[in-house]
């Protein structure tokens, strides 16, 4: 474990150096992601200029959900972005073989191969949005609240990771599962609004099948009194651990299938 942490640090150092080399890329990437996020928030703002609340949720509450989603997603975006590339950059050109003849865990190697600069834009926006929303909520922010918020955000990030890992793994059978990964990932946009505004079917789908509900709405609902989801919200870290475990088991199955069929 210590060895992997050290290795990750070394990989990161190299990735950061490369990032600095392409300075323009870094700035453009961060800015474009920030712009994209900002557009989403702007839209919510326009809607709330005309209504006071959405199914009982105020503007700042929605902003808070948004902020958790953005920061959680940034963990996935910065550190696990390589999951998108499994099919077209590794399996199709045969680069994945390289990872299999190294004496370290291939998933670790695959993830550590890349650090995504654009994710920092997501992180900045997320923190700004959270900072804006938090003082307007009816909560007294003590030490414990901050700790829980951070745990929730990390759990949210790992749920994004688990879902992407699960569907990226399909690439082992079908060469490139990117379209599937992309479609599923887009479902997470639903989770940036209160799940209560949706039909029951969608709510169950986003809670128990593709647990994107735990990436933003439930963690936010934990802090908002009277939301009725405080207990379910406590399951957020559990949901993260369970989905990561399932995704990893599935990855191992995929790897096994890959090594018995080849590409």
């Amino acid at each position: 474990m210590i060895r992997y942490i050290k290795l990750y640090y070394l990989f990161c150092k190299q990735n950061l150096k490369v990032m600095m080399e392409y300075r323009m890329d870094f700035l453009l990437g961060v800015l474009s992601v920030m712009l994209q996020q900002f557009a989403g928030i702007f839209f919510v703002k326009i809607v709330f200029d005309h209504i006071h609340e959405l199914n009982g949720w105020t503007f700042y509450e929605i902003l808070f959900i948004y902020g958790i989603a953005a920061t959680g997603r940034s963990i996935h975006h910065i550190f696990f972005d390589n999951l998108w590339t499994l099919g077209w950059q590794y399996i199709r050109p045969g680069k994945f073989d390289r990872l299999l003849i190294r004496p370290i865990n291939p998933l670790f190697h695959f993830i550590a191969d890349r650090l995504q600069q654009d994710g920092f834009g997501q992180l900045f926006i997320g923190i700004i949005v959270l900072g804006t929303a938090m003082p307007h909520l009816d909560i007294s922010w003590g030490f414990m609240e901050y700790v829980i918020l951070i745990i929730m955000i990390i759990a949210s990030g790992f749920i994004f990771v688990a879902v992407n890992l699960f569907f990226a793994t399909l690439s082992f059978w079908m060469v490139d599962s990117l379209p599937i990964v992309w479609t599923i990932f887009n479902l997470s946009d639903f989770a940036r609004y209160p799940l209560t505004i949706y039909h029951k079917g969608i709510r169950h789908l986003l809670t128990w099948i593709i647990p994107y509900g735990f990436t933003a709405f439930y963690p936010a609902a934990y802090f908002i009194k009277g939301s009725g989801f405080e207990n379910l919200a406590l399951l957020t870290p559990v949901a993260a651990i369970v989905s990561c475990a399932l995704a990893y088991l599935f990855w191992n199955r995929g790897l096994k299938a890959f090594t018995s069929t080849g590409s």
Partner: peptide
């Protein structure tokens, strides 16, 4: 290549 992949452990 198939033989080498099996010797290196890439293929079962």
């Amino acid at each position: 290549s198939t033989t080498i992949k099996m010797l290196t452990g890439i293929l079962t």
